[in-house]
Amino acid sequence: MGKWAGWPSPDMSGRTLWGVSLPIAAPPSAFWPPFWRGFRALMPLWLGMVPFAVAYAVTARAAGLGVLETQLMSVTVFAGASQFAAAGLFASGANALGIVATTALLNARHVLYGLSLSRTLPLTRPQRVLAAQFLTDEAYGVAVVRGPQEAGGLSFAFLLGAELSLYFIWNLSTLVGALAGAVLPDPAALGVAVVFPLAFLGLLVPLLKSRVTVLVALASGLGAWGLSRFLPGGLVILLAGIGGALLGALLSSRNQPQEAQA
């Protein structure tokens, strides 16, 4: 952050520099403040994240993966639920294609997050390539709820800050778990799993502004509860998420036909 902070602002205030148009525009100093706000906005979730990344790493090591392999999965795949599932499947000696198929199923919901974000946040191609690698439930949630409260709305910098906040802590905790897991306490004993529903509840509450949104939340939540008895978590989110949003669109198109025609 500091390197650019001391630049004289008059030269940097425009969208051109020495007559050259800068497509990603804004001066460098305009990137970091929203980046760090995004980074910090996700930090309350670290409390829940650390023990889970450690638990993933311990499970993966117990399943016979090396430290490097355990870490590589956090660096590349970077998706908590499917990493857990894969570690468990490796341990049970499952078929490799089964592991990959489970991962695809669990992570299909990310297409919804991207679609939802891209409506309010136009991204350049390099920005999309970068933002896609670090997209998670949590970063999506924080970006879509907290981002609009930013001056000028949700920005790429804010999204990337939230995304990398999680990436940083997930990978650091994976490393700690992979190296020292056996001597660390079990997350179930710490009770930290409750942090995840708490965090998403905190993101949900400010969105419940109308009768339709409350109905959608109830239908999707209870539907997910029912589905979760016989389907894996990621698929449940995808199906209940689509079902609830369809209900919302149906209800609002039925309630406002006059406005739609006007």
Binding site: R109, L112, Y113, L115, S116, R119, D137, G141, V144, V145, F196, P197, F200, L201, L203, L204, L207, L208, V212, T213, V216, A217, L218, S220, G221, L222, G223, A224, W225, L227, S228, G233, V236, I237, A240, G241, I242, G243, G244, A245, L247, G248, A249, S252
Partner: peptide
């Protein structure tokens, strides 16, 4: 798409 956040967050919380 406007209902996706509400719907997804509820699906992440309740189960």
């Amino acid at each position: 798409l406007q209902f996706v956040p509400v719907s997804v967050f509820a699906a992440l919380v309740v189960p």
